[in-house]
């Protein structure tokens, strides 16, 4: 199983990929993750890749072969959509992080076209406002928890309890309650959407 997680530096894609990786190891799978650390972390586009299974090869997912795409940011989901398999499942946060180049007139952020493109080009798509759900849980910083909770509702192969446990293990005590709530809100949202 191949998972692409993409977003903007600081959104927690690296954390999310490690949590999924740890949970998969606990379930007895082999794991490869790949992330880019460094310059791109400063508000730049970031992509984490997670490969789970047996007899795995390299850390990079080939084009058009990811089973899941977790887009933490709308435009970044579109940017990385080439990685998703034709029948793959996309989970996309509709929250936009508009870069200053747009306000400086250097580029554009055509959000409606981006959403239309996602709808046309994916066979499985869940749009979720993860920032709103995170805020509802108590902190907009809990986006990763929302996305991971939502992911468990879409991916039966990863054990939900294990995933939440691995997430909390990497967070300080004081934000655990908020993140648990965010995780559950994400899961419930997808269950409501896909019922």
């Amino acid at each position: 199983m191949d998972i692409i997680m993409c977003g903007v530096g600081g959104q927690g894609t690296v954390l999310a990929s490690r949590v999924v990786g740890e949970a998969a190891i606990s379930q007895g799978y082999e794991v490869r993750t790949s992330e880019i650390i460094g310059m791109a972390q400063r508000e730049g586009p970031v992509v984490s890749q997670v490969r789970i299974g047996t007899r795995l090869h390299g850390p990079l997912i080939p084009d058009a072969s990811a089973d899941y795409l977790l887009g933490f940011e709308l435009a970044e989901a579109v940017r990385n959509l080439d990685k998703l398999e034709a029948k793959g499942q996309a989970l996309v946060n509709t929250h936009m992080i508009v870069p200053p180049t747009v306000y400086l007139g250097i580029s554009k952020y055509p959000n409606e076209q981006l959403i239309d493109y996602l709808k046309e080009q994916t066979s499985g798509l869940v749009l979720i406002n993860a920032n709103e759900l995170a805020a509802q849980a108590g902190s907009t910083k809990a986006i990763s928890a929302v996305m991971l909770g939502a992911f468990t509702a879409l991916c039966p192969d990863i054990d939900e309890t294990m995933l939440l446990r691995e997430l909390l293990a990497r967070l300080p005590q004081r934000v655990q309650e908020i993140n648990t709530r965010a995780f559950k809100l994400g899961k419930q949202f997808v269950e409501g959407e896909t019922r």
Partner: peptide, 13 residues
């Protein structure tokens, strides 16, 4: 891969 809508330029800042 079908042509994509214009994507915002996102550079590290």
């Amino acid at each position: 891969i079908p042509a994509k809508p214009e994507l915002p330029i996102r550079r590290p800042i």
